[in-house]
Design a protein around this nucleic acid. Structure first.
Length: 324
RNA sequence: GCAGGGAUUGGGGAGCGGUCAAACCCAGCAGACUGUAAAUCUGCCGCCUUGUGCUUCGUAGGUUCGAAUCCUACUCCCUGCA
């Protein structure tokens, strides 16, 4: 940094599940006068607590948490909604002279926010989707591809032609704007001055931690949590219920599968999640300051990294004040 | 004990004389990702010096130009009858 950066400064804590992001976020918030902005898509929903490892009030230790527990499981939500909400929240926190700390493991949401993605505002077209899904079921992927080409929209070459869900969305965009991408773009310069901290551990350690967590969650009443959702009319096939374990537990309650199978499915689901998250947050990504949470002293290193960054930001702030 | 059925690449499971390193599913690994993202999709997945290469289909023999596929013996597993 050679000049004052007048963008809003934010800290982002990323990494796979079960690496301690929550705890670190709370710790830094307390130390540096921050507030947490959740960027984990499964923590949005009320009533989904145990299975999503949502921080408890105790774990939050008095630190304000935003974008958590604000949706019903039946609500539909998307990247576009998140970006609007998260940007507004960050501005609000900054406006109150607090440090926004983004904490989460939803790669697309995090990068969308930090890279300043400009998501085309083309809302889903339910009737078109229903129709296209029927076309896909009856005639297969090729029919969808033909359908997209038939719109003779621009940008078709940028669409993943083997992915039905993407194909349907592309047709939706093509119909609405004449471009299969809908004119998606991203900010030239990232919108925030971001200090990214990545928490990681060897894959086997992560698997071990997450495997152990399954039993703890079940012992903590996860089954009852899902049963309560079920009784209150939350349907098994809602998007929110794609969270690991929830559908399996629905089936277990309906006696379709054994608890053993549920555990196994959850275990595997977690392993896949870790893989997917590591794909969004790559060890080779130089924007991320990586720390191995199995190494001694990693917490101190983070403290000094963040301390320096905060001090520097404040110094720039003083310079700006004098100029102004 | 007798009568049947079966043992296949990490797991499940096709193959039943050549076109078989062996379908497919799962797991694993890598990747994509702009209004479902803990979603959806793609690639790889016996070994190596990557080749008309090597070693595999319970074990040991045999038949055949050629066997995971046929025969014999053995080992183990399952089912039925005793």
């Amino acid at each position: 940094m050679t000049a004052a950066d007048d963008r809003i400064g934010v800290i982002a804590i990323v990494g796979a599940t079960a690496t301690g992001k929550t705890k670190l976020g709370v710790g830094l918030a307390r130390q540096f006068n921050g507030e947490v902005v959740n960027a984990d898509s499964r923590l949005f929903y009320r009533g989904m607590d145990i299975g999503t490892a949502k921080p408890t009030t105790d774990e939050m230790r008095g630190v304000p948490h935003h974008l958590i527990d604000f949706l019903e499981p039946s609500d539909s939500y998307s990247l576009s909604d998140f970006l609007a909400a998260a940007n507004a929240t960050i501005n609000d926190i900054h406006g109150r002279d607090k440090l926004p700390i983004i904490v989460g493991g939803s790669g697309q949401y995090i990068w969308g926010l930090l890279e300043g993605w400009i998501v085309p505002s083309i809302p889903p077209n339910p009737s078109l989707r229903r129709e296209l899904e029927a076309v896909f079921d009856a005639e297969g992927i090729a029919a969808l591809q033909d359908r997209l080409r038939a719109t003779s929209a621009t940008g078709i070459d940028r669409v993943e032609m083997l992915n039905p869900r993407r194909l349907i969305r592309a047709i939706e965009r093509a119909v609405a704007t004449g471009d299969a991408t809908g004119g998606a773009s991203r900010a030239k310069v990232p919108p925030f001055d971001t200090l990214m901290i990545g928490l990681n551990a060897p894959r086997e350690v992560l698997h071990e931690r997450v495997d152990r967590r399954v039993d703890v969650m079940i012992a903590a009443g996860w089954i009852d949590e899902v049963d309560a959702l079920r009784r209150s009319g939350v349907e098994r096939d809602l998007p929110s219920m794609s969270a690991i374990g929830y559908r399996e537990i629905y089936d277990q309650i309906d006696a379709k599968v054994s608890i053993h199978d549920v555990r196994e499915a959850i275990r595997i689901g977690n392993h896949r999640l870790i893989g997917a998250q590591n794909n969004w947050f790559k060890a080779s990504d130089e924007r991320i300051n990586w720390f191995d949470m199995t190494q001694d002293g990693f917490a101190d290193e983070i403290d000094s990294l963040v301390g320096n960054w905060v001090r520097q930001r404040r110094a720039y702030g003083e310079v700006n004040d004098r100029i102004a």
